[in-house]
Simulated assay, not measured.
Amino acid sequence: MSTFDDRERAFEAKFARDEDMAFRITARRNKLLGQWAAAKMGLTPEETDAYAKAVVQADFEEAGDEDVIRKLLGDMLAANVEIDDATVRRAIEEQTVEARRQLMESK
């Protein structure tokens, strides 16, 4: 029974690590998305930092990426930046890859 218990604990630990990494990747991605959008809107460095944090916070409104997409589209359209849903979704994919790369390099 000890081997089974050890295996179960190992699977639980791996699951916890994987979930933690997924959370970190999403948070880093959202920060990068905020910086990307801020550059398109022409924000100052101070405004960029605040905006990136706001995008990270927006992701806690509901599960999935729709809350972040709504925020980015709404803010960018309000700032008279021509953007569409497909461009934002493509940026999400690109920034996810970049966030994963950054986190892997930092380990």
Rank of each mutant, 00 (worst) to 15 (best):
F23H: 15
V68T: 10
R7Q: 11
G64F: 07
E19R: 09
E61D: 14
A37K: 02
G42R: 00
S2F: 10
M41A: 04
P45N: 04
I92G: 05
E93T: 15
P45V: 00
R17F: 06
Q102W: 03
V88Q: 01
F23P: 11
P45L: 02
V88P: 12
S2W: 12
A52H: 01
A39N: 08
A22M: 07
K71Q: 10
Y51I: 00
L32E: 05
Q102V: 09
T3S: 09
R101L: 02
F11S: 06
V68Q: 06
E62Q: 12
R89I: 06
K31G: 06
F60G: 11
L77Q: 14
E61S: 13
L32W: 08
V81L: 04
D5Q: 13
F23M: 09
N30K: 02
A58N: 04
R9Y: 04
E66L: 11
A22R: 11
A37V: 00
V56I: 07
D84C: 09
A86R: 15
A38L: 02
T48H: 02
L43G: 05
D5W: 13
R9T: 10
G64A: 08
V97E: 08
I83K: 01
I92T: 10
S2H: 14
R89F: 04
V68M: 01
A54C: 01
R17W: 13
P45D: 04
Y51M: 00
W36F: 04
L77I: 13
L43C: 02
D20V: 15
T96C: 03
V55Q: 00
D6A: 06
R101V: 04
Q102T: 10
E93M: 13
E12L: 15
T48S: 03
D75Q: 11
F15H: 07
